[in-house]
Design a protein around this nucleic acid. Sequence first.
DNA 1: AGTTGTGAACTGATTCACAGCC
DNA 2: GGCTGTGAATCAGTTCACAACT
Lengths: 220, 220
Amino acid sequence: MARPQRIPRPTVKRLSLYLRELEDLAEHQHETISSKRLGAALGLTDAQVRKDLAYFGQFGHPGVGYRVPELIGQLRKILGTDRNWNAAVVGAGNVGRAIIAYQRFRRKGFDVVAVFDDDPAIIDREIAGHRVRSMSDLARLVRELDIKIGVLTVPAAVAQEVTDRLIAAGVRGILNFAPVRLDVHDAVAVASVDFSVALEQLAFQISLGVTGSLDEKGEE
Amino acid sequence: MARPQRIPRPTVKRLSLYLRELEDLAEHQHETISSKRLGAALGLTDAQVRKDLAYFGQFGHPGVGYRVPELIGQLRKILGTDRNWNAAVVGAGNVGRAIIAYQRFRRKGFDVVAVFDDDPAIIDREIAGHRVRSMSDLARLVRELDIKIGVLTVPAAVAQEVTDRLIAAGVRGILNFAPVRLDVHDAVAVASVDFSVALEQLAFQISLGVTGSLDEKGEE
DNA sequence: AGTTGTGAACTGATTCACAGCC
DNA sequence: GGCTGTGAATCAGTTCACAACT
């Protein structure tokens, strides 16, 4: 089970895109797919696809391509979405509500099991089937409910403070929607989504005259 | 005003992060900042910061650093957020509502001037001060209201079709929240935000044992 | 002293091209 | 015929290191 090699960061991002495309193919009963066609669907070369996948093992079948259901299984295992994670949403504003209602999260194995906010006006109210909890219950509930992921949908000004509390309570990863860089010690993982950054990328491309899209080829 | 050089894609992403940090510094009345301190705040080297900025001109002052308000102005100009863009939100579901209410968009110069949906149950209803319009009015309103940006918050299955309609109506850029790759001819810019991809990046880091964050150093 | 801007060196990522397999 | 996996070659991005400036 040794995996001695360093994985390029852009590769990890593309794995998600491969999986998304493969799940689509599976729905349309495609049994196999070649690196060439998979790459074309995502704007990548065939060599790129093969190299990315080869970091993790030999999943392909010469002369045939990759078997879709098999590769889906492998990618889920690699990405860690073959198991379930309990998650807490902190911040029941507009973005928080959207996340709670986002069906795709559950399908990826993320179960929102608690929602927190510090606004007395909404504590104990129900949002999309979840009773909003007080921040003072955070540490206790993270432990009791075995919450491993914190989804941060709070204002930027309090994001770091809430992060520290989540980590102290035992969370292993933070999905950050606040427009700030979070300082965490490196036993905790962070992934950030910043709408404004995306918007500025778009504005830049448009102002530029637009030649290629900065879309999801390496980024998103 | 010639700008002959090719800009690395990671550089453009970092410009947004510089701007975010600088706006924060400006609020705390910092007059100047060195590449070293700016880099440290974002987990980057000083050389990286200087090289990124130097692609666009000579904004620094040897012995002093960068003057914060001056650099903010330059970055806004470079990113194209020094002017205003009219935007339409297509899809008035949870994500669409969150976007409509997101104050930061307006501050970046993006004005949501129309909201569209195809659900008769919500057409003509008000959402956060916007009357929801029928999809059949899309082409006409894009022209009449001079809408340049389409924000796609529709289900994946119809994302490409809606994109085609937006482009046909004259939109110059698409901010895509649907988990699909959009095919567009290259006079139109696309930037994508995919929550599931972010979630999978997080899961991967956690499963890995976690050594460094894949955060926003080059990724977001 | 402190700091920028930039060519040169280096590191990392992508593409090429082909042996080996179906 | 088609296709994968992978070393070698190329391309892109980052860091180094230092002259020039305040």
